[in-house]
């Protein structure tokens, strides 16, 4: 019932679902991601409705986007999703050290992605593509920026979790947290795949 039963020692195979609290957390987070899907769905709709409103004299998506950087960012983020899977697998076999290492790698990839995105935005602003330039630019920065903020929050969150696991070890209280953070990381990865397709690829095609 409570969080006391398995605090240390023998962890069950799926420690995140060992307690009612854990199961609640995982289910609640699935539902939260359902809500997040609607959130990004609405942002995508707004972007699709406004993406042709570039305005006279402003850079078009075709001129603006540099697919090389974006493809690299995509590759980095997809890989980080894989490393977070390795972390969860290590958790399921109760290997704490590899789990922490995989989480650290995930965070580093996340930081690399953010770095690329900041560079990209900086570059765009210099090209005259500011937040307030046009309806296209506003919806672009809002959609991609919301995603970037999610990545940033994820990096912070997983970093705090790594610190916690260092101190408290892996148990039925920390396991659901790691599991849920993994779910979150996959989610923002999936969202990025859609951004890459809808924003960048479709923007390049016109």
């Amino acid at each position: 019932m409570s969080g006391h039963t398995h605090v240390d020692g023998h962890l069950p195979h799926e420690p995140e679902k060992a307690t009612l609290e854990g199961r609640n957390k995982v289910l609640g987070f699935w539902l939260f991601l359902g809500g997040e899907t609607v959130l990004f769905g609405t942002l995508f709709s707004a972007f699709l409705a406004l993406r042709h409103q570039v305005g006279d004299g402003n850079p078009t998506p075709m001129e603006l986007f540099d697919l090389k950087i974006v493809a690299l960012a995509t590759f980095i983020l997809l890989t980080s999703s894989l490393t977070s899977v390795f972390a969860i697998q290590s958790m399921h076999t109760n290997k704490v050290k590899p789990m922490i290492w995989w989480l650290i790698i995930t965070v580093l990839f996340g930081l690399a992605f953010l770095g690329l995105e900041i560079y990209e935005f900086y570059h765009y602003v210099h090209e005259g593509h500011k937040f307030s330039t046009s309806a296209f630019s506003t919806s672009f920065y809002t959609l991609v920026g919301f995603h970037g903020a999610h990545v940033f929050f994820g990096v912070l969150w997983i970093s705090i979790l790594i610190a916690q696991i260092f101190k408290k070890g892996l148990n039925v209280v920390t396991a659901p947290k790691v599991y849920v953070a993994g779910m979150y990381w996959h989610f923002i990865d999936v969202v990025w795949v859609f951004i890459f397709t809808v924003v960048y690829l479709m923007g390049k095609v016109g």
Binding site: A46, A49, L50, Q53, V54, G55, F131, S132, T133, S134, A135, F136, S137, T138, S139, T142
Partner: peptide, 18 residues
């Protein structure tokens, strides 16, 4: 909020908003 506080253009018809 972005429109109102950060000069966004989502709903600003003069800048292509809808």
């Amino acid at each position: 909020m972005f429109d109102r506080l950060f000069s966004g253009n989502f709903f600003e018809p003069t800048n292509g908003g809808n």
